[in-house]
């Protein structure tokens, strides 16, 4: 078991909103209010305790820090005013910067979403799930996407998805979605990403 005595200080200083957890009184409102309580090993309350105890590896590798749906209930209800959701996102970002991926599927889905924005300026709901599945590689990806086939077909029938579902994910169809200011948007996205990386450098 690892104990790094300066981990709490590291969180207070380097994690976005990390210093806010200093005032936690361990009441457990965050734990009882989180809709995903039964899907987590450690509630926010427990994570704060682990941070104070210096359990660095356990916290930064914990998949629960990357499970948040961003429902904001914890932030609204914390009696000490801790922006719990911001600390959770802060911890997830911090782990990613340190080369740790606390939860593989959330990262892959975010990347698939991101790829879609980068290609057209908007998100194409028909290709994001396919892009997401293919992050596992071609064979595993196709297998995974088969589980979504039924709902995909039904949505196409209702004209809520267009058949470009079956077009390779990086193939771009002229006229579909692509915004006019895409070049500038891509420049912006590249810069923002580089700045983010430099900040943590």
């Amino acid at each position: 078991m690892d104990y790094q005595q300066d981990f709490a200080k590291e969180v207070y200083e380097k994690v976005d909103s990390g210093a806010e957890i200093k005032v936690c009184m361990q009441c457990g409102v965050c734990a009882s209010t989180c809709p995903l309580r039964e899907k987590m090993k450690y509630s926010p309350r427990k994570l704060w305790t682990l941070i104070r105890a210096g359990r660095r590896q356990e916290v930064l590798n914990c998949p629960d820090i990357m499970l948040c749906t961003s429902c904001y209930t914890c932030k609204v209800r914390c009696p000490r005013g801790i922006p719990v959701i911001d600390v959770m996102h802060g911890l997830a970002h911090y782990a990613l910067e340190k080369g740790i991926t606390p939860r593989e599927e959330t990262k892959k889905f975010g990347e698939a979403f991101w790829d879609s924005i980068y290609e057209t300026g908007r998100v194409d709901e028909a290709t994001v799930p396919i892009k997401y599945c293919l992050k596992d590689g071609m064979i595993a990806g196709l297998k995974k996407s088969l589980s979504m086939l039924d709902i995909g077909m039904a949505l196409m029938k209702a004209k809520r998805l267009t058949p470009k579902l079956f077009i390779p994910p990086n193939f771009f169809i002229p006229g579909s979605h692509k915004i006019k200011g895409l070049k500038d948007l891509q420049k912006m996205l590249d810069k923002a990403k580089a700045m983010g990386a430099r900040k943590e450098g």
């Binding site: 970002h93 979403f113 991101w114 923002a192 990403k193």
Partner: peptide, 8 residues
């Protein structure tokens, strides 16, 4: 996207 990069 927010879960990956806030600045973006």
């Amino acid at each position: 996207a927010h879960s990956l990069d806030h600045r973006v």
